[in-house]
Amino acid sequence: MTGDIETTVLLPLPRIAGVDVSITNEVVLVWLAGGLTLAILLPVCRRRGLVAQGFYQNLMEGLIEFVEKEVVVEGIGEKGRVWAPFLLGIFFFILSANLLGLLPLPGLFKAVTSNINVPAALALVVFGLTLWLTIRRRGFLGFLRGFLPAGVPWWMGFLVVPIEVVSWLARPLSLAVRLFANMMAGHALVFVFIGMAAGSAWLLKPVPLAGAIVMNVFEVFVAFVQAFIFTLLAGIYIKEALEEESH
C-alpha cells in the first residue's frame, strides 16, 4: 500500500543503441518536473530590474540565492560559481519532481523521485561529473593515487584502498537511495493513513485523516529538505573533485 501508480507505456518507441526510450507515464512526470523547473526559473531569472518586485520574485530569488550561497559559495567557494546553474538545476528539478507528488490527484501524479531510476539518473550525473572533474584536475594516475590518502603507508594500501573505493562508489548509491527512500516513505505513510481512514469506523476516521494531512504538510518540508541535501552533497563532491588532494 504505497499509493504508487503503475508504469504505463504511453508511446512505444524503437530502441536507440539498445536502449528502450518508450514514453511512459513516469517519463511524462519527469518532463513535467523539467517543465516546472523551467517555468519556475525562466521568468524569475529573465526578469529585469535591479530590485526584486512582488512576492513570487522575492521568494524565488531568495531561494536561488539561498542555494547559491549555502551550496555554491559556502560549499565550493568563489570558483564554484560556474557550477551554480548545474546545482540550481538539480535543486529545482528535484524540488519540482517532489512537489508534483503532492498534487491531490492520486493515480495521475506521484513524486517521480520515489522511483529509484530518477534519483539514480541524477546521482549518476553527479558521479560522472565528479569523476570527469577529478581526472581532468589530477590526471588518471592522480585519481587512482587518491584512493590511498596522503600519510598512509603503502603497505596499508591493501586495506585502505578497498575501503576508499567502496566509499567512493557508495556516494552515488547513497545519494540516490536517500532521496528515493525519503520520498517513497513519506508517500507510503500518507497512503497508509488514508487507507486507515478508509477502513476505520466513522467515529475514528478523523484521526488517520488528520495524520494524513499532517504528513502531507510534512512532505512539503521533506521535498525541500531532500532537494537541498541532494544539492548540498553534489556541491561537496564537486568541491572535492576540484581540490588537489584526496577524493
Binding site: 508504469t7 518536473a33 523539467g34 548545474f86 522511483n115 531510476n117 539518473a121 541524477l122
Partner: peptide, 19 residues
C-alpha cells in the same frame, strides 16, 4: 527502468542546458 533512466538523463541535461 531504462526508459525512465534515459529520459531523466536527457530531460535533466536539457533543463540544465536551457537554464
Amino acid at each position: 527502468d531504462q526508459r525512465l533512466l534515459a529520459w531523466t538523463l536527457i530531460t535533466f541535461g536539457g533543463v540544465v542546458a536551457i537554464l
